[in-house]
C-alpha cells in the first residue's frame, strides 16, 4: 500500500513544485488532510445524484 509520502511525491512532481525541506512536514499534513476531506466529500450519499453548483451558459 502506498504511503501518503509516496503519493505526495507524485503530486508534487505532477505540479512541478519542489518545496524546501523545512516545508515538507507541513505540506504532508496538508496533503493528508486534503485526502481525508476528499474521501469525506465523496462519502455523502445525499450528493450521489446532485448536479454541480457551477453552471455553464452558452450565451454570456
Amino acid at each position: 500500500m502506498h504511503s501518503n509520502e509516496e503519493k505526495l511525491a507524485v503530486v508534487l512532481e505532477m505540479s512541478g513544485i519542489t518545496p524546501p525541506a523545512e516545508d515538507q512536514e507541513a505540506i504532508l499534513r496538508a496533503f493528508s488532510t486534503g485526502r481525508e476531506l476528499s474521501k469525506l466529500i465523496f462519502s455523502v450519499a445525499q450528493a450521489r445524484y446532485e448536479e454541480p453548483a457551477l453552471i455553464f451558459s452558452a450565451r454570456v
Binding site: 448536479e51 454541480p52 457551477l54 453552471i55 455553464f56 451558459s57 452558452a58
Partner: peptide, 18 residues
C-alpha cells in the same frame, strides 16, 4: 443542441456542463 435547449434531467450524466 445549444447547451440548455433541451432539459437533460432524467438522463444519466456523463459531463454535467457538456
Amino acid at each position: 443542441v445549444t447547451f440548455g435547449r433541451v432539459p437533460k434531467s432524467g438522463v444519466v450524466p456523463l459531463a454535467f456542463s457538456l
